[in-house]
């Protein structure tokens, strides 16, 4: 019975996950010659040219910075929302979720109108007699776009873990003489690690692979790894190189998941993932 219900999922996974993955691996490890496809590592060798390394370092850097900012901004919000005394929890939750009902592209376009030279931000600044800022088409704008779009993915998992912490544990810590800082660092923070792990994973991965945020808010000046892959498939038609970069991306993501699950095991807790 159990096996029978699993079958459709198995077929689905083979068709849409396993077979495409095999195709990606095939293209990545072969080069097409007049005599047919030949096993080769050329596609990977090409990736280690300095120009492509620069692209991946920049992608990693921007993704890390965005993830860190999301964590620093998101954790306190999750704590406030999870707090027993907070009565507007549903409203706040709604405020976080409602923007996600709107199309992601549309929300990113909106930032263009806010940040541009004669945009909303600079009009507001000039009203306040403050100097105008030009951050559109800079790294800062790309990070802003990522933090804005991915922040809910950090807040929600942390919130759901914090909610589940037994209040008795916190009371016990207080009763045993811990000050608020001690309660946080010794009790709440360690217990919330699974939430942090899910949040970091859920922000880091899309931030690493995004290509539309960097194109719109970065003005196409900062090629990220997502742009590079898109370019290979759509413009150049070099499926081999595009697949090789994709494989390298998969390796990066597996590595980061490995590091994450190391933390998770140490804590022996279940996360959302």
């Amino acid at each position: 019975m159990k096996k029978a219900t699993f079958l459709p999922y198995l077929i689905w996974m083979i068709m849409f996950i396993v077979i495409p993955l095999i195709l990606v691996l095939f293209y990545a490890f072969t080069v097409s010659t007049p005599e047919g496809y030949k096993l080769s590592l050329d596609n990977f060798k090409r990736f280690f040219e300095p120009v492509y390394l620069k692209v991946i370092l920049r992608s990693l850097g921007l993704a890390l910075v965005s993830t860190l900012i999301c964590l620093v901004l998101g954790y306190p919000v999750a704590m406030i929302m999870a707090g027993n005394t907070f009565s507007r929890r549903d409203v706040l939750m709604l405020l976080f979720v409602v923007p996600m009902w709107m199309n992601f592209l549309l929300r990113t376009y909106a930032w263009l109108a806010i940040l541009e030279r004669n945009g909303i931000l600079n009009i507001a600044l000039s009203w306040l007699k403050l100097p105008s800022v030009n951050i559109l088409y800079t790294n800062a704008a790309v990070v802003l776009g990522m933090v804005y779009n991915f922040l809910p993915f950090m807040v929600l998992p942390i919130y759901s873990v914090l909610r589940k912490i037994d209040k008795g544990v916190i009371e016990a810590a207080h009763d045993l003489g811990a000050n608020p800082v001690g309660v946080f660092t010794k009790v709440i923070l360690p217990l919330s690690v699974p939430g942090i792990v899910s949040g970091v994973t859920m922000v880091f991965m899309p931030a690493l692979t995004t290509f539309i945020i960097s194109r719109l808010l970065g003005g196409g000046q900062f090629t990220l790894i997502g742009n590079l892959i898109e370019q290979q498939f759509l413009v150049v038609g070099d499926w081999g190189f595009g697949s090789a970069i994709s494989v390298i991306m998969i390796v990066f993501i597996l590595l980061s998941m490995g590091i994450m699950s190391f933390f998770e095991d140490a804590d022996k807790e279940k996360t959302l993932w």
Binding site: V51, V55, R58, Q221, F222, T223, N227, L228, Q232, V236
Partner: peptide, 10 residues
């Protein structure tokens, strides 16, 4: 062309 363009963008 693609390599040159990636170099410019990076």
């Amino acid at each position: 062309y693609d390599r040159i363009w990636t170099e410019v963008k990076a």
